[in-house]
């Protein structure tokens, strides 16, 4: 019987050192977490997080330095926004965003690390095995790799604090609405794209993805404009479309 597995990305300077300190202090915690060392929590790309879920992680933990303590000054602030983006995409793929957790643990907080890991492991165990439609998570991965959401994830902080090019500072509420809309759209587009590894019509797509036909059509037109799909054939007066090129199984590859 396989145990649920949690993938942990810990920054070298704070959280990883804190995890080592937990060891040195012989604090015990559940063995489900598999730790990957990164230099900074800001390094953790939503694509990588979602890929871990795609391959079967029951939870993903990201640990960085406390706000203001980042060894690289602001990496952890960027991490926060990227994790937020990944959570939104998890939600789209109908995976409980609670399965992705970001925490600040300093190098001297072995005890805190243990407390958090115990808590998180319990939470993941209580949530049970992770279930999602493969195509949904793949679409989430693709969306996270797309430049639109990447710009947003990085610029969000700036837009909230300093304003955009026109000096308009976004409120949290406006930002949330903007993000919700864009993430959903991007995700839907990627789902459609993935479905089109075989020819399909708007109607078929609409039925399979449980999306309104007009929304599907709008995305189809966009995809066509960006030359990502082609018109395949007209079947019984209904056009079908097919994706141009997509790496094998829609995986994110280098």
């Amino acid at each position: 019987m396989a145990e649920v597995k949690i993938v942990g990305f810990l920054c070298n300077w704070c959280c990883y050192a804190g995890a080592d300190l937990a060891g040195v202090s012989r604090f015990q915690y559940p063995s489900n977490i598999r730790i990957i060392r990164v230099m900074c929590s800001g390094r953790v790309d939503p694509v990588i997080i979602l890929d871990a879920f795609l391959y079967g992680a029951a939870g993903v933990f990201v640990g960085g330095c406390h706000p203001g303590d980042c060894h690289y000054l602001q990496g952890n602030y960027y991490a926060e926004k990227k994790i937020e983006m990944a959570r939104r995409l998890l939600k789209e793929a109908e995976v409980d965003p609670k399965r992705l957790r970001l925490e600040w643990v300093s190098a001297s907080e072995g005890e805190r690390f243990v407390k958090i890991i115990k808590e998180f492991t319990d939470e993941i165990k209580a949530l049970g095995p992770v279930t999602f439609e493969k195509g949904a998570m793949e679409a989430a991965c693709l969306a996270a790799a797309d430049y639109r959401l990447r710009i947003l994830a990085t610029k969000e902080r700036e837009l909230l604090e300093e304003g955009n090019k026109y000096g308009e500072v976004f409120t949290r509420h406006e930002m949330d609405r903007l993000l919700d809309d864009l993430v959903r759209e991007e995700y839907e587009v990627k789902r459609i794209l993935l479905k089109l590894n075989k020819p399909m019509s708007v109607k078929e797509l609409s039925a399979e993805l449980n999306l309104k036909p007009n929304i599907v059509l709008r995305h189809i037109l966009d995809l066509k404009r960006y030359e990502l799909i082609d018109l395949h054939e007209i079947r019984d007066n209904t056009p079908t479309y097919i994706a141009r090129e997509l790496s094998e199984e829609g995986e994110i590859t280098e």
Partner: peptide, 11 residues
């Protein structure tokens, strides 16, 4: 300094 934030931010 090798934090990698640029990498995870690159669009």
């Amino acid at each position: 300094k090798g934090c990698g934030t640029c990498g995870s931010s690159c669009i």
